[in-house]
Design a protein around this nucleic acid. Sequence first.
DNA 1: TCAATAGTTTAGAATAATTATAATGTAGTA
DNA 2: TACTACATTATAATTATTCTAAACTATTGA
Lengths: 142, 142
Amino acid sequence: MSKNSEFIDKLRLSGLRPTKQRLKICEVLFDREKTFHFTINDLAKNISDKIGEKISLATVYNTVHAFKNKGYLKEISVNSHKSYFDTNITNHHHFFDQDTNQLIDCDEDVIENLKVKKNITGKKISSIEVLIKVATDNQNQK
Amino acid sequence: MSKNSEFIDKLRLSGLRPTKQRLKICEVLFDREKTFHFTINDLAKNISDKIGEKISLATVYNTVHAFKNKGYLKEISVNSHKSYFDTNITNHHHFFDQDTNQLIDCDEDVIENLKVKKNITGKKISSIEVLIKVATDNQNQK
DNA sequence: TCAATAGTTTAGAATAATTATAATGTAGTA
DNA sequence: TACTACATTATAATTATTCTAAACTATTGA
Ligand SMILES: [Mn+2]
Ligand SMILES: [Mn+2]
Ligand SMILES: [Zn+2]
Ligand SMILES: [Zn+2]
């Protein structure tokens, strides 16, 4: 399992000890084809599905925050009362499907020409994010 | 107080009874020069500051949700574990000051050329929002 | 004018997401 | 191996929000 030793290196380089739990979480998060957008609950479910052993919810929280602080995960702003995380750490924008509560990455060509022409004086821009909320084509507004 | 009878009309027209509490909340929300961006806590504090009487927190929640459903308030997506509301119900974008946790409206000319060129098939876009996070010009990244 | 009624307010309980605590366990290192 | 700092865990605490059910009030029409 070469992936596994990559994860060990990555963790060591970040000053995080490669524990059994963190490696399992790495597998679930980073050993996949596509971007993973998840809430802590999604992740916990995913872990217990894919793996026999259980990881404490506190550890899942701790690890997700550690990974976020190291820049391996992004937190996404969604109008909801849960935090969403993203394994795609590049600058990109999202659709949010209000029917399924799923985040979906926008392809490069979805948002055209986004330019921010002014800024608050004395402040630095740390991120620019577009969120496009979508729903089934009924009368589902707002 | 002509404002007050305007509020009464507005509430009646929406099928909401113009109660003492709702009128006080209208005053705090809508009788002001500039847009008000707030959390429920901000609003509750604002109410108890401006007014002698206390309004139950449950009523503040109920009223804000009622006003949101009637389209008098918008809820804004911010990366936080609180809901933010906005008295500016037009389509517009925001700065979010990470130092003060304040939302600030973008002027018309801040965001240029925002075009969404594709959409999820079978879905309808219900909103497009840009959130620009800013912080003091130190090493405050992410 | 005045009940009847449906809608509203309220305190407090319940829920859900997240964070804190503090005891136990383990990885790194000498 | 033994020490130490870091990590995991169950559980408690916290926080925002929603629910409940009893008391209150605006509206209506007799
Ligand atoms: Mn909401
Ligand atoms: Mn957060
Ligand atoms: Zn994404
Ligand atoms: Zn606004």
